[in-house]
Nucleic acid binder design. Structure first.
Lengths: 225, 225
DNA sequence: AGTTGTGAAGGTATTCACAGCG
DNA sequence: CGCTGTGAATACCTTCACAACT
């Protein structure tokens, strides 16, 4: 029993979705989720079934959103407390996150920012403390930060990433276009624009021909067609 | 003969990498690529073999970077000219791209920006023209723009995306956390931070145990382990 | 009726192992 | 020998089809 990664990613997103949803109590059906996400209803049912049954509200009525999202979080090891993240690199892009509201709904907390430029650290304002980069080694372990958002200039990407790993970071969201050669105990999610565009172009180039008769919807790169 | 999407994505990235590489002429081996990307050497060889042989420099020496990257671009249909992109939503995040240098190395061109707030459009400066949103329908077809970077507030995401599709956009890089229910003739690449963090957390939670004896490197979420 | 849940089938991508070339 | 190239084997994920339940 091991949850496949694609399934895990879908479930993570689903949990997030359920928590943002209105109607906290009214049951959610696999068909409704299909409408929201574009993932086929059987995909969703299969995914959910993989985390062990017992999430259906009665039998035919759908899932209990509350219970389902809890089950997902447990199964994925998303323990109760919010996960601590830091943002590294406070340039144009990085500083955009300082006022990004999206973190509130989520189970992640942005709780520190770093930049090698001390000026920036002093000028910028945020709801959480900002530090000069040389303090990473002290601050990151102390605050129990496991995730980092990397938004430094490309030239500094690799060395900064390595430093982050030394500080105990286990997951990096990499906004630079640079490939990070890190031990695979660390997970890296590549989100540079160019990279995203390249993926799009690549997929469009090989777009399969089995379009079939369907005007259903899709919504995520995980819809592997 | 159809190139699998994961392969296409890897190859796209590889091409990009080769072009950034120093040593334009010295052959590149699958092992070197492994070091750079974290993809196993046999994965790379397989990927390359799928686009038809004849990229090896002599036989045992490795690949000709120049020839290889050209072969990739051809095979993926990345025709000569740069691909036109626009940025939609010029808030904090969107406007960060106006001065993003990463586009220069790439085969993508950022050539228009849109925002519903006319003030922003007038105040902001960029190397390319900025327009009020209502001009999308006219500008996008005229400039032959196929890709859009979506950076509007979440509440406007869906309607804006739909409008983009109407205008002829075929690929959307979605920076909002909102799932876009679009026909699957359109490719969407989701790059919201929260989403990326969730993916990381999900993968770390299910991290497979077959770590084996290896301290090789990894670098991309496509390393499906 | 409409739903979930899931074994089984099917399809795709990854990994292996080794032939073949320089 | 080291390296590419690739058929074959494997592992993985998705899709189907239908039983079970309300």
């Amino acid at each position: 029993m091991g949850i496949p990664k694609p399934t895990a990613e879908r479930l993570a997103r689903l949990a997030q979705l359920l928590e943002q949803r209105q109607n906290r109590t009214v049951p959610v059906t696999s068909t409704e989720i299909e409408q929201l996400t574009g993932w086929a209803s059987h995909t969703i049912r299969k995914d959910i079934s993989l985390l062990g049954a017992g999430n259906t509200i009665a039998g035919s009525t759908g899932y209990d959103p509350e219970r389902l999202s809890r089950a997902i979080r447990e199964s994925l090891g998303f323990t109760g407390e919010s996960r601590n993240c830091c943002i590294v690199g406070l340039g144009r892009l990085g500083s955009a996150f300082l006022e990004y509201s999206g973190f509130y709904g989520s189970h992640f907390t942005l709780c520190a920012g770093f930049d090698s430029n001390v000026n920036r650290v002093e000028i910028l304002k945020a709801d959480f403390p900002l530090f000069p980069s040389y303090k990473m080694k002290e601050v990151i372990p102390r605050m129990g930060i496991r995730y980092a958002i990397l938004a430094v200039p490309p030239s500094q990407a690799v060395q900064t990433a390595e430093k982050l790993v030394e500080c105990g970071i286990t997951g990096i969201v990499n906004f630079t276009p640079v490939i990070l050669p890190l031990p695979h105990t660390v997970e890296v999610e590549q989100v540079s624009v160019i990279d995203a565009l390249s993926k799009l172009a690549a997929r469009l180039a090989v777009t399969q021909h089995h379009a079939a008769a369907s005007d259903t919807t899709q919504a995520d790169e995980n819809t592997k067609e």
